[in-house]
C-alpha cells in the first residue's frame, strides 16, 4: 500500500518517550538491572564451571550443577530483563475474523461444485474407475507394509519345546535330581537344549518330601494325581494375564504371584488364579523321574501357555 499512498514530507512525530506504556515495570530499574547483571555473570561462571567439570572429572552431579546452574542464572537474568526493564504496555492488537468474505466463500463452493460437478457428473465411469483403482492400490500396499514385517503365528503360540521325556535343566543346563531341592524350594527350569526360552520357562516347586504328591496337602485337579513326582510340581512360568514370568513364590501360603500385575495362583490346586486379573490357571507340566533320579516331563503341556489370544480354543 505504501507505494501508491501519498507520502508525507518527513517522519511522523515520535511517540512520547514518557508514555507510561513504554516505562519498565520495575520501580527501580537500576536495581533490576543490577540483579539481572549479577544473574548473567553467575550464568557465565556456571558455563565456565561446566567446562572445568567436564575437563576434570566424570561427575554427573558437578556437570548438572554447573550447566543447570548456569542455564538457570542466565535464564533468570534474561527473564528479569524482559519482565522488569522492557516496556510492559499493556498493548493491544485487534483480532481480525479470519473467515473470508461471503463472496469468497460462495466462489469457493461454486468452484468445487460447478467445475467439479461438470467433470464428475459427465464422466461418472471414469470417476468410479479411479476410485476403484486407488482403493485397490491402498489395499495391496498394505501387504508389503504389514505382511512383510514378520511370519504368521502358525502354531507357535500353541507349541512349546516340552515333549514326552524332556529333561528338566536349570538355566545353566544342569539336570535336576529329585534330591536337589528342599521342601519349599523353587527353581526356574527349561527343557534340555532350550535354556532361556521365553515360551518354555517353567517354575519347579517342591511341596513335599515324598510323592507323587502328598494327598492331604494338594487338591489335585481331576486327572492330575500323578503329575507330580517326589513332591515336585511344575507350572509354566508365563503368566496367563500378560506373559510376565511368575517368579514370586510365597512358601507359607503356597501361592505364586505375578510381580507385574499381582495375579495370585494357588500352587496346591493346579495353580488356579485366586485374585487379580489372570483368567486361567498356569498350565501344569506333568513330571516324572528317570532311573538316575533326574526329573523329566511326562509329556508337553496340554494347552497353550501364556496370555489369551483369539485362536485359543
Amino acid at each position: 500500500m505504501s507505494d501508491d499512498a501519498p507520502r508525507l514530507e518527513g517522519p511522523l512525530p515520535p511517540a512520547a518517550l514518557d508514555d507510561p506504556h513504554l516505562q519498565p515495570y520495575a520501580k527501580h530499574p537500576e536495581r533490576a538491572q543490577a540483579v539481572a547483571a549479577v544473574a548473567m555473570v553467575v550464568g557465565f561462571l556456571g558455563f565456565i564451571g561446566f567446562g572445568v567439570a567436564y575437563w576434570v572429572g566424570d561427575s554427573a552431579q558437578w556437570e548438572a550443577v554447573t550447566l543447570g546452574g548456569g542455564l538457570l542464572a542466565l535464564g533468570f537474568g534474561v527473564t528479569a530483563w524482559g519482565k522488569y526493564l522492557m516496556p510492559q504496555g499493556p498493548f493491544e492488537e485487534e483480532r481480525h475474523e479470519f473467515h473470508s468474505t461471503e463472496a469468497e466463500r460462495e466462489a469457493m463452493t461454486a468452484a468445487v461444485t460447478e467445475r467439479g460437478g461438470m467433470v464428475l457428473r459427465r464422466r461418472k465411469l471414469l470417476g468410479g474407475l479411479f476410485a476403484l483403482g486407488s482403493t485397490a492400490m491402498g489395499i495391496v500396499l498394505l501387504f508389503p507394509l504389514l505382511r512383510s514385517l514378520g511370519p504368521k503365528p502358525g502354531n507357535t503360540l500353541f507349541e512349546t519345546n516340552w515333549t514326552k521325556n524332556s529333561q528338566l535343566v536349570t538355566v545353566d543346563g544342569r539336570p535336576i535330581h529329585v534330591d536337589d531341592l528342599a521342601v519349599g524350594g523353587v527353581l526356574t527350569v527349561f527343557p534340555r537344549g532350550y535354556t532361556g526360552s521365553s515360551q518354555d520357562q517353567v517354575i519347579l516347586i517342591r511341596l513335599a518330601q515324598l510323592g507323587p504328591l502328598d494327598p492331604p496337602l494338594v487338591i489335585n485337579p481331576p486327572g492330575r494325581t500323578d503329575w507330580g513326582v517326589q513332591g515336585y510340581v511344575a507350572y509354566s512360568k508365563m503368566c496367563t494375564h500378560l506373559g510376565c514370568p511368575v517368579g514370586l513364590y510365597q512358601e507359607q501360603t503356597q501361592q505364586l504371584v505375578c510381580p507385574c500385575h499381582q495375579s495370585i495362583f494357588n500352587v496346591l490346586s493346579g495353580a488356579i488364579p485366586e485374585f487379580g486379573p489372570a483368567p486361567r490357571p498356569l498350565p501344569q507340566l506333568p513330571l516324572t523321574a528317570d532311573s538316575a533320579g533326574n526329573l523329566r516331563s511326562q509329556s508337553g503341556f496340554n494347552q497353550a501357555v501364556g496370555p489369551g489370544f483369539w485362536e485359543r480354543p
Binding site: 507520502r7 508525507l8 511522523l12 515520535p14 511517540a15 513504554l22
Partner: peptide
Amino acid sequence: TGVGVRRVM
C-alpha cells in the same frame, strides 16, 4: 494524509 516512519524507544 501520508505515510511516514515514526521513531520511538
